[in-house]
Design a binder for these strands. Structure first.
Lengths: 233, 233
DNA sequence: CAGTGGTCTAGACCACCCT
DNA sequence: GGGTGGTCTAGACCACTGT
């Protein structure tokens, strides 16, 4: 199963394999991973190596360890609720709300000698024919990485599902600056706010696992969006 | 030097010792840590344990490893999360700034049948006789967990260092709600702001490793505090 | 009690960096 | 070549969890 002579370390190979099983649903939310002893036998590697691979999963926020019990898939807290990156659609559906995306702008721009698709989306949830607008998401996607990405209709398909399915690119981590800003008239109108109130703004970059920049973002979070954080310190 | 029979794991003891040497200037910016072989001899522990201790320092953002060369103290990098839960004092010292803390309020209160020390602190950094106020931190510490904590002068000593040194309690993770708020007159005056601008507010709970609530917080972040986030998604 | 993860030892071989 | 960190093995003992 694992290739001892590959340049990729065994713990990375195992880490990739386990992450894949979690993300494709083979290991479901709340389920336990095979124990360290089982993994030792299954892959014929030592416990140290297995522990290293699993520790990476913990750092990635995919699993949690519980002493004396096992390692359990925990996708919910750190990933959901946080922002609308990959969990937006799933999160909405879980709450029996229908996710709604309206594309406000979609254009090719050039910045610092790089060509980007600029995609501005208004996002919200619908229940009982009433739509609550949550965020204004602005994404900049380098089109040399995502060739032909401008052909998709992002009111119909999810951006992150497209990146995964059509480009085999998986967002890994994000670096953000978070600031409070005062709502301007345009934001007010788009988010359907009655008065000018302070909002949250996030600017930053999304990276793939190997450190490649895959998306620059500039999002505005409206008052109906709960910005929750669960951080290890 | 290290106590093999202590309940505190050796790698934590070594990690603490090295962090201390970095923060108190014994190991200066850019300097190399002793090599793994040297540390093995100095502390009579194996390389695995040393590597674990050093890896924690890397995670904390205090050092960087360079293959074939060594481990170097790197305090100025801004890669890591920039808030004051890992210790405002530690963070300021890392940036070669002098932390300033003014205690605004210190009282015993009771809430939900639990007795807390309520500690409100104005915090900033001083350079060239000019103090820049960054945050207003409000902490609620359960006094049945931290007996006698009201005797400390938190203008003189760091809260987190006290928790570590006097109570052997280590913050592990934090759950936060983050909201934008409008500055009121009191905040404006305390943070020495010229006009009313939107600010960031964080409310939440800090937990120890075993899930015990060790602190409730309600912090206000002024415009000079950069709220950076580095998250796996 | 058996099974789990937590810590630690004492080695080994490797790739990388500098001289 | 000699020193550094990167990976890996094959054990050991421990604390915690559930039955």
């Amino acid at each position: 199963m694992l290739n001892k002579y590959d340049v990729i370390p065994l713990y990375v190979q195992l880490n990739d394999k386990l992450r894949e099983k979690i993300l494709n649903g083979e290991l479901k939310e709340g389920e336990a991973l095979p124990s360290e002893n089982q993994l030792m036998q299954e892959y014929s590697i030592t416990r140290t190596t297995i522990r290293r691979a699993v520790d990476e999963l913990v750092k990635e926020g995919l699993v949690e360890k519980e002493q004396g019990k096992g390692v359990f898939v925990r996708l919910r807290q750190t990933k959901q609720n946080l922002w609308n990156f990959q969990g937006f659609t799933d999160l909405s559906l879980k709450k029996n709300q229908q996710p709604v995306t309206r594309v406000l702008k979609k254009e090719i721009i050039t910045e610092n000698n790089t060509v980007f698709l600029k995609l501005e989306r208004l996002r919200g949830t619908k229940s009982n024919e009433k739509t609550t607008w949550l965020t204004i998401d602005c994404s900049f996607l380098p089109i040399d990485v995502f060739k032909g990405i401008d052909r998709f209709d992002f009111e119909a398909v999810s951006l992150y599902q497209t990146l995964r399915n059509d480009y085999q690119i998986f967002p890994h981590h994000v670096v953000l600056d978070i600031n409070p800003i005062m709502c301007d008239d345009k934001m007010c109108e788009r988010l359907e706010l009655l008065s000018q109130i302070p909002l949250l703004e996030a600017r930053g970059t999304v990276y793939s696992k190997d450190g490649m920049e895959i998306e620059k973002i500039h999002n505005i979070y409206g008052p109906h969006f709960q910005f929750k954080l669960n951080q290890y310190i």
